[in-house]
Design a protein around this nucleic acid. Structure first.
Lengths: 208, 208
DNA sequence: GGTATGATACCGTCTGGTTGGTATAAGGGA
DNA sequence: TCCCTTATACCAACCAGACGGTATCATACC
């Protein structure tokens, strides 16, 4: 109980950091902003974190864990066919594009773009989170490849990175246009790409 | 002569801003950083620009114009077939992924992701620049569609946004990994996507 | 009473922006 | 040709405010 109450304010700070940083960027996000959003004072903040940078790293980890849980519980995992799971993943991500931008945007992509050269530790944390998500995704891609295009020249991992690139880029245009409409269409093209990619090689193996 | 020499420092400031902002982000990029990189004093800066935000808008426009010139002069325009021009565009963009990150990265994507909610005027400038580049690209996509997939359900514009999403996302991973290797592979997948997209519908129209 | 947690008040530094001034060149009148 | 005025370009020094971070004190639970 106490422990929960104690840890509660640390969690609140992490959640607030996630939201504020996604809205204003890492540098512009003031500790006061974050503390205010968390309903906590700065003294409490420095009890839990040594510095703003440490918060940045912790927020990246926190976001990664949250994402891991979210996707692990998502319904698309049910599908038996790995390609269907992949397409289900894309559909699921399309379905997430609702609400305000800071709610569905990726903290890791946002932060790493801003601080990649100035905050090496945060950059590493973002890279780790992104890579582990891609690694998870790559398992299904690899399975789909074994099934439908075992001899295709591409690597499953590179498809995983491609998928995440589309996602990250889609977020950028959602921000630029302040509307997720185009992002949805981009993800829809991504879905087509996956269908084409595996269908092509499926036919190739069948035909030749 | 005099005019050129005078205006030179404004151009130097814009070039410096482009580079420094791409390296450190807009907020972290200090006026002193930019002035130092331009070899100009802060007093001179405020002679040419009313505020840092005005510089941000001007830098976005400056970058857009530079990009327009770069792509207008690129060799891929020579191709007669619009699909070949598109593939040439992708190849050209792959070939640009050399040198340090702040040299080949997109200023507009970098800035808009950071300031989309806090600096409306810069956001608009970024949106304008990105959209006009996509509009240019969309002409070739539309031509290729007319030629190879006139009845396909997708819009040429949405393919343009998809292409730019892949690019912007690829930059993010180049930054996260501090290596453009994966970005190249992503663009290579994008190239395959375009081939598949138009080949599919080409076959469809031929066959049925 | 001791330990984990939170609140208050404050400090040094840095940043965008201001001020007041100098140098150079162009025009204009005699 | 010379001087005077004006506009443009540039510069050094400074300022007020905000920021990350610290020191210190209060509270609550065991």
């Amino acid at each position: 109980m106490t422990t929960q109450l104690h840890h509660q304010s640390k969690t609140r700070l992490l959640d607030a950091a996630m939201h504020v940083i996604r809205a204003k960027g890492y540098v512009a996000a003031t500790l006061e902003d974050i503390c205010h959003a968390a309903g906590v004072t700065k003294g409490s903040f420095f009890h839990h974190f040594k510095s703003k940078d440490e918060l940045g790293v912790a927020a990246a980890d926190h976001f990664s864990q949250g994402a891991e849980g979210l996707f692990a519980a998502a319904p698309y995992h049910q599908a038996a066919d790995p390609l269907q799971r992949l397409l289900g993943y894309v559909d699921f991500r399309i379905s997430l594009l609702t609400g305000d931008l800071p709610e569905y945007t990726c903290l890791l992509g946002t932060m790493v773009q801003e601080i990649y050269a100035t905050h090496p530790d945060i950059r590493t944390a973002c890279d780790t989170g992104l890579s582990s998500h891609i690694a998870e995704l790559t398992r299904d891609i690899e399975a789909a490849k074994q099934l439908y295009a075992p001899d295709a020249p591409f690597s499953a991992e590179s498809v995983g990175f491609f998928m995440q690139s589309v996602l990250q880029g889609a977020f950028i245009f959602a921000k630029a246009k302040q509307d997720p409409g185009m992002a949805r269409k981009s993800l829809s093209h991504l879905r087509s790409f996956l269908e084409l990619l595996f269908a092509r090689h499926k036919n190739e193996t069948v035909m030749g």
